[in-house]
């Protein structure tokens, strides 16, 4: 506990101590999804070639510069796919993505990705891992200062020379965040960055992310399956899911059956997840985790995720 507290306050003080221009040297970019759809080739053996398994369809969405957008959805609904498309790690089957008006083609230098797992290189120290995130062509001295700043920001200054296996999961995730920030991204893509952390660490990481956003107000796309996390962090939440009658399970079945009968027919039918709801979260951050207004929104979002609303939704653990 004392250790954890120090870390937290350390991050806060460092933020205040940071010269304003240093962390936030980049401007935030708008992200536009235009009719994005993505289908994967089915891996079922009997399905043979040519059977496509649609994951996303008709996703059109504009994220304003500096906005924090949470992408909510049940597992396997294509949230991560959407994020990967935005970062150029994957490309859409149809439609296009534009960042700051220019289309994304391949891995985009304007984006930085924070993965669900820390994905640090185990043979490099924490500092050297963060260095990996620096934009190409950063001079050694500038890079070293920037890495030190970022480690301070995420409260890992004392662990710069540790290997990833010598630090805890939460610390590794903070290092991963620092690496993403090192890129000075116009768009920060976070794929369930806190999903694998324990509940308390998660809350602290959420606060840290808010601090980071204040220090460097970049556009953030945050994929999560955690309704409370979305409500706490986001300006706007979109809910991805399957429209009535095109439930994922049903989609697979029909696709398979159709595959045997007639392969081309699959393409004519529309499946895949799309934006079901879009809502703006009221109130300025940091928000009161227990407010009634958020509780109401939480109920609506949970209902959208297929969790039947009971008369009272337990507020624990918040």
């Amino acid at each position: 506990m004392p250790n954890a507290t120090t870390t937290r306050t350390g991050a806060a003080t460092s933020l205040e101590a940071l010269p304003g221009g240093h962390v936030s040297t980049n401007c935030a970019f708008a992200v536009e999804f235009v009719g994005v759809g993505r289908a994967f080739a089915s891996e079922k053996k009997r399905g043979a070639r040519g059977v496509m398994y649609p994951v996303l369809r008709d996703v059109s969405l504009t994220v304003r510069p500096g906005e924090v957008l949470a992408i909510l959805g049940t597992s396997g609904c294509g949230k991560s796919t959407l994020l990967r498309i935005a970062g150029g790690l994957d490309s859409p089957s149809v439609g296009s993505v534009r960042i700051d008006g220019s289309p994304v083609a391949g891995i985009d230098a304007r984006c930085a990705v924070g993965f669900q797992e820390p994905r640090l290189l185990p043979w490099r120290t924490v500092a050297a891992n963060v260095t990996l995130g620096l934009p190409a062509g950063t001079s050694r001295a500038v890079g070293r200062n920037r890495v030190a700043e970022l480690l301070e920001l995420v409260g890992l200054s004392g662990f710069a020379e540790h290997r990833p296996r010598e630090i805890s999961g939460g610390m590794a995730q903070r290092a991963s965040l620092a690496r993403a920030l090192a890129r000075n991204p116009g768009v920060l893509l976070l794929d369930e960055p806190f999903g694998a952390l324990d509940a308390l660490t998660k809350l602290k990481m959420q606060d840290l992310l808010l601090d980071v956003h204040v220090a460097a107000p970049t556009t953030i796309l945050l994929v999560t399956h955690d309704v409370d996390e979305a409500l706490q962090l986001a300006d706007r939440i979109i809910l991805l899911g399957y429209e009535d009658g095109t439930d994922k399970e049903e989609g697979t079945d029909v696709a398979d059956r159709t595959a045997v009968a007639d392969r081309t027919a699959v393409a004519d039918r529309v499946y895949g997840a799309t934006v079901l709801q879009e809502l703006t979260v009221p109130g300025a951050r940091p928000r009161d985790r227990g407010s009634a207004e958020l509780a109401e929104l939480r109920g609506r979002l949970l209902a959208g995720l297929g969790i039947a609303a009971k008369s009272t939704i337990p507020a624990f653990p918040y």
Partner: peptide
């Protein structure tokens, strides 16, 4: 694969990706 993808996501490719991620991983 996750490490390689992370390397690619941070702009590494070709010889650099091999030297910084793939080769150290197999040493």
């Amino acid at each position: 694969r996750q490490l390689v993808e992370a390397g690619r996501a941070f702009g590494l490719k070709g010889v650099k990706l091999f030297a910084l991620v793939q080769l150290p991983a197999v040493i």
